[in-house]
């Protein structure tokens, strides 16, 4: 039985495996790498430009009505607050901006005059609350999210083409991503969109576990997690429901996947 082990070791240490090929030169590889990098930079630059322009258009479209209403609100509160000293209108606006940014609803209620005020303050509060939302909770990593269609995923620019089929039927496709060079970093099903995302090995879940964490830490962070074999699965309630899959070597997490519960790819 052990003969085969020995034979394999002997074969793989055989000198005849050496390839005396001059077809791959260092210069060729370095040039090829530079070419790829430039191409990617050009694509990323174009995409960034498009994104910036798109964001600009979006901001201008959505923000256009907002300044008018807030200005109106400021002016009205300013008038209400400073009824006694009417001559200096410029200083009064400064005072009013201060009150609005502090955002004290009682003030505006007391003033009574500013009916657009609540709208203004709520808008500003919603704006401040969106950026710090943790990215991984709603089945999302970076620009990619579970269930996202292949076209949308490609549009994010996070996927590295070309793709390769991920299962024997050639239904699902596997992509490498910018952050994970593995060819199976993202698996896309034609019916369900992205069904699995491999997290980069430096990434942590919102509960601060990731590759390199102890299995016990994973179980402490995700009390509902279930171990089967060498992997630990933690269900995340979201719509659509998904799970963290922590691949381990028995003690330490080696890889973290985000996987759609309702996935239809055979190998995922």
């Amino acid at each position: 039985m052990d003969d085969l082990d020995d034979d394999l070791r002997r074969l793989f240490s055989d000198d005849r495996l050496d390839v005396h090929s001059t077809s791959v030169s260092t210069e060729l590889v370095v040039r090829g790498a530079a070419r790829r990098r430039h191409r990617r930079a050009a694509v990323a630059g174009t995409f960034a430009l498009v994104a910036v322009v798109g964001a600009g258009i979006g901001v201008s479209r959505f923000e256009m009505p907002a300044p008018d209403s807030t200005v109106g609100a400021l002016l009205t509160t300013a008038v209400s607050v400073t009824t006694t000293p009417p001559p200096p209108p410029s200083t009064s606006t400064v005072i009013s901006t201060a009150t609005v940014t502090v955002g004290q609803p009682p003030n505006s209620n007391g003033g009574n005059t500013g009916k657009p005020d609540p709208g203004g303050t709520s808008r500003s509060s919603s704006k401040t609350s969106t950026p710090p939302t943790p990215e991984s909770q709603p089945g999302r990593y970076g620009t990619l999210s579970l269930g996202m269609s292949e076209a949308d995923a490609l549009a994010t620019g996070s996927l590295v083409e070309p793709s390769s089929p991920a299962d024997p039927d050639n239904r699902c496709k596997a992509y490498a991503t910018k952050s994970v060079p593995d060819a199976n970093a993202v698996i896309v099903s034609p019916a369900r969109g992205i069904v699995r995302i491999t997290m980069p090995n430096y990434a942590k879940t919102p509960k601060n576990v990731g590759a390199g964490s102890q299995v016990s830490e994973v179980k402490a962070a995700y009390t509902n997690s279930i171990q089967s074999g060498s992997s630990v699965t933690a269900q995340i309630s979201a719509s659509p429901p998904w799970s963290y899959i922590f691949e381990t070597d028995g003690a330490v997490v080696t890889t973290v996947f985000m996987r759609l519960n309702a996935n239809d790819c055979a190998t995922v």
């Binding site: 390839v19 090929s21 077809s23 791959v24 060729l28 590889v29 370095v30 090829g32 790498a33 530079a34 070419r35 790829r36 990098r37 990617r40 060079p181």
Partner: peptide, 19 residues
């Protein structure tokens, strides 16, 4: 050996582009 050369070149180019 030929596939080996192709494979090494492709992978090294990819890795080198994000070295």
């Amino acid at each position: 050996p030929h596939d080996s050369a192709d494979l090494v070149q492709t992978v090294l180019e990819k890795v080198g582009s994000r070295w």
